[in-house]
């Protein structure tokens, strides 16, 4: 790691004040991506603003009406094991339980993962499919507007995610095909149905990060059944190719994971 100044803060306000004064400061949430990146000297923030002491205010899960509110510092383990999440959006609890490994889930946070927008991360697919809203210390941003590209989000400098609000869907499921080496999503497909609105989102596969699979959505909007996906396939264009999976294989897996997700969402 390169040298940095360490700041421990106990509130979002203090964090954002500090961030505004330090242009290349970074927030430290779980650190599951940031710290390895810094260890490899691939990131060199001048300061780290440690949010872990603000966990009391920034973490927690609440059901409010037909929404679930999850604080930004809520650990993956807590989302995966929350009775509220398991009841309202079991797909989201499932997804949180598939991130990294148990030790990573104990530390990693939803806010950190969403802000990082790693193209192979799991959470972005859930936010986009469930039409979640990202609350920051400054504003509310819909998931559609939030994820803007590879490791890119709508967050402005110094802007801090405080919580994420998920509308409860009528049906949802997440299917992940992990990269054999890293266990990140090589292809992850989240399907969600809320009223007539069906969303199918794909992570891990796209060369510009998470995306919605329009063809699949249209087919499932007509009827939310696996048979609706017969003959529908994803195109390899714009998908990643690497030693573990070429674009054609990823495209194929999107179809497989989508069908399996629909079956799961339908309780099959």
């Amino acid at each position: 790691m390169y040298q940095f100044t360490y700041h421990r803060v106990d509130s979002a306000r203090k964090a954002s004040n500090l961030a505004e004064k330090n242009e290349d400061a970074k927030f430290l949430a779980g650190g599951m991506t940031l710290l390895p990146t810094m260890k490899q000297r691939l990131a060199s923030p001048s300061a780290l603003i440690d949010l872990n002491s603000a966990s009391e205010k920034l973490a927690g899960i609440e059901v409010k009406g037909r929404n679930i509110h999850i604080g930004a510092m809520t650990r993956h383990y807590d989302v995966a094991n929350s009775k509220d999440v398991q009841e309202a959006i079991p797909a989201l609890a499932d997804l949180a339980g598939m991130i990294g490994d148990p030790a990573v889930r104990h530390r990693g946070t939803i806010g950190g993962s969403v802000a990082n927008n790693d193209p192979a991360a799991d959470y972005p697919s859930a936010l986009l499919a469930l039409n979640a809203t990202i609350h920051t210390n400054k504003r509310k941003i819909t998931a559609d507007e939030f994820f803007t590209g590879l490791f890119e989000t709508a967050l402005e400098p110094g802007e801090l995610i405080t919580k994420i609000v998920f509308p409860v869907p009528s049906k949802a499921a997440y299917m992940k095909f992990p990269n054999p080496a890293s266990r990140y999503a090589m292809v992850g497909v989240f399907v969600a149905k809320k009223g007539k609105d069906v969303r199918v989102t794909v992570t891990g596969a796209g060369s510009s990060g998470v995306f919605r699979a329009g063809k699949f959505e249209a087919a499932l909007t007509a009827k939310f059944h696996v048979k609706s996906l017969e003959g529908i396939s994803a195109t390899a264009e714009g998908l990643n190719s690497d030693i573990h999976a070429d674009a054609a294989y990823r495209a194929h897996l999107i179809g497989v994971m989508a069908r399996r997700a629909v079956n799961k969402a339908n309780g099959k």
Binding site: P180, A181, S182, Y184, I243, H244
Partner: peptide, 27 residues
Amino acid sequence: CEGAYYDKSGQLITASFNDYCMPRADD
């Protein structure tokens, strides 16, 4: 799962456990 690969310029592509697949308990 294991395989070490260099690209044409001689850079090791599989240079960490993120890319070089080590067998795990569930493999």
